[in-house]
């Protein structure tokens, strides 16, 4: 936590999700479940018990037929940078066990399950509901345990888990880069499972600091917004939408407030 950013070329991995392309099919969730050994329950409708690292929410504009519009909102962990991008994420700053910390090299917020003792303070601190608690030991049906990924350690009862931006894929990509004596990763070498699973290409993943990555341009689009911008959590997950009501749904904006102006105001303080 006290570690200083002493890397000149620090990455800031982030995601841009085009909500106009998202059909709400849930492929990203399925891809994530199988990639990250996320245990599923017999009754996934019980949202107090179910665990997922990315969840697709459904929002509507609240207008009666025929003006009703629906938008699907996939929400992974936002990997907050915190105020001033100093790694002061809401969850990191409250964890009493240092089970979650901010990796300055990638900007990814870690969660170490063997370190977590399940106080769930981070869940209370997270404004995005990104963190889930294991009320039970994971159980996979019959032979499914053989399909578990060896690159992600399964979690036990009593710990909190969350999206890691498929950090193990970053590690494996780094391994290959070391082997080939390269310093930098290519954009397509490190992609999250959800980004790869999305059939419409709504999810774009890459280094927000790297001008050659697709996310760099997308995040600067006038249609880009982040959730709860006003809280200054500085998330690394951006959303795109042409629809004004969707952009306004990103925070609890008052009728007279313009999201763009709030965004500008918040960014000035960073």
């Amino acid at each position: 936590m006290k570690e200083k950013n002493n890397h000149k070329h620090a990455k800031r991995y982030g995601m841009v999700i085009d909500l106009d392309k998202c059909t709400g099919c849930g492929s990203c969730m399925v891809g994530c479940y199988s990639e990250n050994n996320v245990p599923f329950k017999t009754d996934e409708t019980n949202k107090l018990d179910s665990i997922n690292w990315i969840q697709v929410y459904k929002i509507t504009n609240g207008k009666p037929f025929p003006n009703t519009e629906v938008c699907y909102l996939p929400m992974p962990c936002m990997q907050c940078d915190g105020v001033g991008k100093h790694g002061h994420s809401p969850c990191v700053s409250v964890c009493p066990a240092v089970a979650t910390d901010y990796d300055y090299e990638t900007g990814i917020v870690s969660q170490i399950y063997t370190r977590c003792f399940g106080c769930r303070y981070c869940m209370a601190a997270c404004p995005y509901h990104a963190r889930k608690f294991n009320w039970w030991d994971p159980v996979w049906p019959a032979d499914m345990e053989k399909y578990l990924s060896p690159n992600v350690s399964p979690r036990m009862r009593g710990v909190v888990e969350k999206c890691s931006f498929c950090f193990h894929r970053y590690q494996l990509a780094r391994d290959k880069a070391y082997y080939e004596k390269r310093e930098e990763l290519k954009e397509n070498e490190y992609q999250t499972a959800c980004a790869e699973a999305c059939p419409t290409g709504a999810i774009t993943f890459g280094d927000l600091n790297n001008k050659s990555h697709a996310v760099y341009k997308l995040k600067n689009s006038p249609n880009a917004f982040r959730l709860l911008e006003r809280l200054k959590t500085n998330p690394k997950v951006y959303y795109l939408s042409n629809k004004r009501w969707v952009r306004r749904a990103g925070d609890n904006y008052l009728a007279h407030e313009e999201p763009a102006k709030i965004k500008q105001k918040v960014n000035q303080h960073h």
Partner: peptide, 12 residues
């Protein structure tokens, strides 16, 4: 390296 590194460097 001058620092112990972040948790994710060695944990998965």
């Amino acid at each position: 390296t001058g620092h112990k590194g972040a948790c994710f460097q060695c944990h998965k």
